[in-house]
């Protein structure tokens, strides 16, 4: 009956001798649970090598992925939000912004920059989800508006990387009007026949989807990204039943005809580069 006999002794390490695994050394994929060293995860552009899951990343990472040698000139970096409505919910809006600034080192939910992709000049605006859910307020609208002006002045293409829960409620109607503002400005870019590439990443919903994110000459997305107008919870409440599998994923949106293609992050730069070259030749 050796089954019931303990052959190995079990854990014998004394508490004193136990070692802590240092934080951040390993990355565990949230989908397939594969564990790899964080350094490797970075070199794979935060995409799981096993299942292809795309982790959410910010503007710093996208700029590094896209711009040649990570060289770029940040535009209008000092723009910050004001509080025209003196908005207070559970805390003051100004306090919320200040805390988020401290926590993230960012000034708002978008950064814009000029640089080269394989030697081709471009303006890139990239949203940061960790700044109040990537919400669109006056600063996001103004920076996009100015990014369009920069593109017009330099006669170069524009790329906007969206990652946002939608409008920023604490700026109420101001935030709503950023939809009108950005869309109106994009008509100028269209008149000048300058290409506009819109990359939709996880998640892109609400007022951002209902304005600049869906207005690209090319609407492209990362695999598996949540893309929609109404959030899934709201849709579920409206129809009163569970949502079908894959609802509002990039693949779903592609299938319904609102995206040009889905691009793996590891091929993003070369795809954009090819597209830009084709439009120039």
């Amino acid at each position: 009956m050796s089954w019931f006999k303990r052959i190995k002794e079990g854990i014998t390490t004394s508490t004193k001798e136990k070692k802590e695994t240092p934080e951040g050394l390993w990355h565990k994929c949230p989908t397939c649970k594969t564990i790899i060293p964080t350094k490797d995860h970075e070199t794979h552009m935060y995409v799981c090598t096993e299942c292809g899951h795309h982790d959410r990343i910010g503007s710093a990472e996208y700029f590094e992925i896209l711009f040649d040698d990570n060289r770029f000139e940040e535009l209008d970096a000092d723009l910050k939000s004001d509080d025209p409505l003196q908005f207070i919910d559970t805390k003051k809006y100004t306090d919320r912004v200040r805390e988020t600034e401290k926590k993230t080192g960012l000034k708002d939910a978008i950064r814009t920059a000029g640089g080269d992709i394989d030697g081709q000049a471009i303006i890139v605006a990239c949203m940061d989800f960790k700044f109040i859910g990537g919400s669109m307020g006056s600063v996001v609208g103004e920076k996009i508006s100015r990014a369009i002006d920069h593109a017009l002045n330099k006669k170069v293409p524009l790329m906007i990387i969206s990652k946002s829960g939608g409008a920023r409620m604490m700026e109420a109607a101001f935030s709503l009007m950023q939809m009108a503002k950005t869309s109106a400005k994009l008509t100028l870019l269209a008149d000048a026949r300058l290409p506009y590439i819109s990359l939709l990443t996880d998640p892109t919903t609400g007022g951002v989807t209902a304005s600049y994110a869906m207005l690209g000459d090319f609407n492209i997305a990362e695999p598996g990204a949540l893309i929609g107008f109404a959030g899934p919870r709201v849709v579920k409440e409206t129809i009163g039943k569970d949502l079908p599998k894959g609802f509002q994923t990039a693949e779903f949106v592609l299938e319904h005809g609102f995206l040009d293609f889905i691009v793996d992050r590891r091929e993003l730069k070369s795809k954009i580069s090819t597209l830009l070259r084709m439009l120039k030749n």
Binding site: S211, F229, T238, Q248
Partner: peptide, 21 residues
């Protein structure tokens, strides 16, 4: 705007964005 399932399938976001533009 109606937040229904079919509205999403038929591109509610795109429809509004296109109108603004």
């Amino acid at each position: 705007a109606f937040p229904g399932l079919e509205a999403e399938e038929r591109g509610q976001g795109e429809a509004i964005a296109r109108n603004l533009f």
